[in-house]
């Protein structure tokens, strides 16, 4: 064997080993802790469970507090799908127009897009606005909040990507008689597919994992999202906590992103790289 082959083999082996340690070991830890009894789980040890309690724990988490987790999954699903849809459609439109149409408004619009990235959102004034509009404590209100906070980043991605689409395509479509709406939805939007996948992946994960926004803007157990169900199992000064249930909950919550990754694996990687080169 040549020196080159040996080097390739060692580098490859190390890479596989590192990814196993970084990705699979934490997941294995979640799984085995979720399968333990409460006393055993509280030791937080990386050992095989003495008693395999996985189904009992998962059942307990699902049944807990009148099935709050099921409600939370529905809420999270609606929240994620709706807010990401809003982000994709509006950011694509804004990004397209900003890139194609040069006007003296552009610097002002760009300023606000950047401001949306930089200026941190303040909780109390935002709640006042929502109260004024009568949409505080509603899922619709939170969808708007999530979409607003994610929009700036998406606009920047779309704007950069639209720059790579030849202007001649637009002109050809216009010559063939397409109006502005038809031009955008039939010609431009399909071409944006790689960056749309990027936005969907990045923002779905961000919205699905969000803890602070649902906590402040959508209080109440009827409105809980999945991340808000986690802290019920944490310990406090007067409670020992239940780490087995906590990890069973984490395991269930990890499943939707995992399924998404398995099915959209190829598009995700393609979308990431296209975003990386052109963004």
């Amino acid at each position: 064997m040549s020196a080159l082959t040996i080097r390739r083999w060692t580098v490859g082996t190390i890479a596989i080993f590192v990814s196993v340690v970084v990705f699979l070991v934490p997941f294995a830890f979640i799984l085995i802790t979720a399968a333990k009894t409460a006393p055993e789980a509280s030791q937080l040890a990386f050992t095989w469970p003495a008693e395999w309690q996985l189904w009992n724990n998962i059942g307990a988490v699902i049944a807990d507090r009148n099935g709050i987790l099921v409600r939370a999954f529905i809420n999270s699903l609606v929240l994620t799908v709706a807010s990401v849809a809003v982000m994709v459609i509006f950011a694509a439109m804004v990004g397209y127009v900003l890139q194609r149409k040069r006007s003296r408004w552009n610097p002002i619009i760009n300023f606000f897009v950047l401001a949306g990235l930089i200026v941190p959102p303040a909780v109390v004034p935002t709640i006042w606005v929502l109260q004024g509009l009568g949409i505080f404590k509603t899922l619709g209100g939170l969808i708007l909040i999530e979409a607003t906070f994610g929009l700036s980043f998406c606009i920047l991605l779309f704007q950069a990507f639209v720059a790579t689409i030849p202007r001649e395509l637009d002109e050809a479509a216009v010559l063939d008689g397409a109006g502005p709406i038809r031009l955008f939805f039939r010609i431009v939007l399909p071409l944006l597919k790689p960056v749309i996948v990027t936005v969907i992946v990045v923002q779905s994960v961000a919205v699905f994992n969000d803890f602070a926004n649902p906590l402040y803007f959508l209080p109440g157990d009827a409105n809980a999202t999945v991340q808000l169900t986690l802290y019920a199992y944490a310990s406090s000064a007067t409670s020992a906590g239940a780490l087995n249930l906590l990890f069973a909950d984490i395991l269930l919550i990890t499943i939707p992103p995992l399924i998404m990754y398995i099915f959209f694996n190829r598009q995700i990687v393609a979308g990431m790289t296209s975003g990386a080169i052109k963004g």
Binding site: P121, A122, V123, A212, N213
Partner: peptide, 14 residues
């Protein structure tokens, strides 16, 4: 990453 840290710091901002 900047957006995500911004979101996390919301509690402080509050």
């Amino acid at each position: 990453s900047s957006i995500f840290t911004t979101r996390r710091s919301m509690a402080l901002i509050a």
